[in-house]
Amino acid sequence: MTATEDLIASAEAHSAHNYHPLPVVVASAQGAWMTDVEGRRYLDMLAGYSALNFGHGNPRLIEAATEQLGRVTLTSRAFHHDRFAEFCARLARLCGKEMVLPMNTGAEAVETAVKTARKWGYRVKGVPGGRARIVVAANNFHGRTTTIVSFSTDPEARADYGPYTPGFDIVPFGDLGALRDAVTEDTVAVLIEPVQGEAGVLVPPPGYLPGVRELTRERGVLFVADEIQSGLGRTGRTFACEHEDVVPDVYLLGKALGGGVVPVSAVVADADVLGVFRPGEHGSTFGGNPLACAVGLEVVAMLETGEFQQRATELGEHLHAELGLLAGSGKVVEVRGRGLWAGVDIDPSHGTGREISEKLMERGVLVKDTHGSTIRIAPPLVISKEDLDWGLDQLRAVLG
């Protein structure tokens, strides 16, 4: 038995089977490349679902983390620490907002947004107690907590976790008419992903996001944009909402905010929204800890230069042009996405998304499938054009 087989067998024996990973065991990584326990290298074309926008082991982020590790890593919010104020101020400024509520994971940020919207609805909008409702989009992916899966339309994510949390109305993604019909006097927020990642990198039709913004303002409802996967440079802008000059009331951030080093997430909004919280009404032991703030500060500093957004724009144009040629050949049914992010629907005659992912793995490229014959491509923003082209060459070879 090889080292890979032995480690996979041990994992299968001693861990819950809530994931079905590709049969590769990563031992080290740098930039856009990962190396397994056998010494074989793989081009990472997933980037941890955009958590690794700045690549594996980014020197700036590792230095920031290492320096902080030697000082203090955790105080809890029972005390102030010397990285917290600057992190909140710099992140708020990057977002054009006033306040930040730091958490750890993306799901925690979404849960926090749900609580924020409901509390705002009762205290500010004046919705009668217990009646607040939030409108969400079908095919969403906002996390896997019991509340979040309560408004999922994915049977795999939702089945067997009831009873489900009430208070959510689901409408088709991209349908402004359905959204308008769903908003009532009890609606406190519209929660959507500007680009639906897990659904296959679905980009809404032009005018949809501005329409959501106009409707929510008109009806006195919060627009909450889940930019956990689409934000922080992935689409070629700091936030995917910027592609249509839209500024939501609330940004939900995560994944890349931790630089692939530590889990960091945040809810970012103005004081009239986040100001509804009083001491003791919400919290997190690790949220906003010194190590997270040190890494998050460096992420913000890197985004402030615009360098990574520009790379995502330029390499994204190249990526979509090359994938468009595959679509024209008939081997690919459809390509969607923005920036350095693409959902690729493979012609089913070539195999399922899982089968295509396995064939790419054998050729040294790692991607992730979703929904039948769809694969997602989202390499670190630091990938070179040469490496990106090599990865696309492997896709062409797999498709014949």
Rank of each mutant, 00 (worst) to 15 (best):
D245Q: 11
T352S: 15
L392P: 00
R123Q: 15
K255C: 02
L191N: 01
R90N: 09
T116C: 07
E111I: 00
L325H: 08
E355G: 09
P206V: 00
E322I: 01
D249S: 13
L94E: 08
Q394R: 15
R311M: 06
A240K: 10
G258T: 06
S373L: 12
D393W: 06
G372P: 00
D369W: 10
R336I: 01
V398T: 11
L94K: 02
H81V: 06
Y164E: 12
G343L: 13
G233H: 02
T35R: 15
F277V: 01
E386L: 11
W390P: 00
G306S: 01
V295M: 11
L222T: 09
Y251G: 10
L52Q: 06
T35K: 15
T352Y: 09
F168R: 11
A266H: 05
A294F: 13
G280S: 00
R278V: 14
E214N: 06
T66L: 14
A378V: 04
T66S: 14
T187E: 09
Y251E: 00
P204K: 07
G57V: 00
E362R: 15
H17W: 06
G177S: 12
S230I: 04
I346A: 03
Y251P: 10
P172M: 12
A109G: 03
D393M: 12
W120E: 11
H142Q: 10
Y251H: 11
Q196W: 01
E307H: 09
Q310N: 00
E281D: 03
A321Q: 07
V203R: 08
I192Y: 05
V171I: 13
A178W: 05
L22T: 01
D245F: 05
N104R: 10
I377Q: 04
R396W: 03
F54M: 11
V24C: 09
Y122Q: 13
R311S: 02
T145S: 15
E111R: 04
Q196Y: 02
E98S: 15
Q229L: 13
A16M: 14
D345S: 08
A159H: 04
V195C: 05
A117P: 10
V212N: 07
E334I: 01
G177D: 13
N139L: 14
F277I: 07
P379T: 09
M99N: 08
A199I: 04
E12G: 02
G39P: 04
T116M: 15
V25T: 14
E98P: 06
D226V: 07
M103S: 05
V335E: 00
A137S: 15
V247F: 06
V37R: 12
G207S: 09
G288Y: 07
V262D: 13
A11G: 14
A321F: 03
R338E: 11
R90M: 00
A269S: 11
H14M: 14
E244V: 04
S10W: 07
L366N: 03
E307K: 08
G130R: 00
G106C: 09
M302R: 04
V212C: 06
G372A: 01
G330T: 08
G337Y: 06
P172L: 14
F141Y: 15
E304Y: 00
S357M: 02
M103C: 07
T105L: 11
E108Y: 07
E314F: 02
G288K: 06
R217W: 07
L395T: 10
E5Y: 01
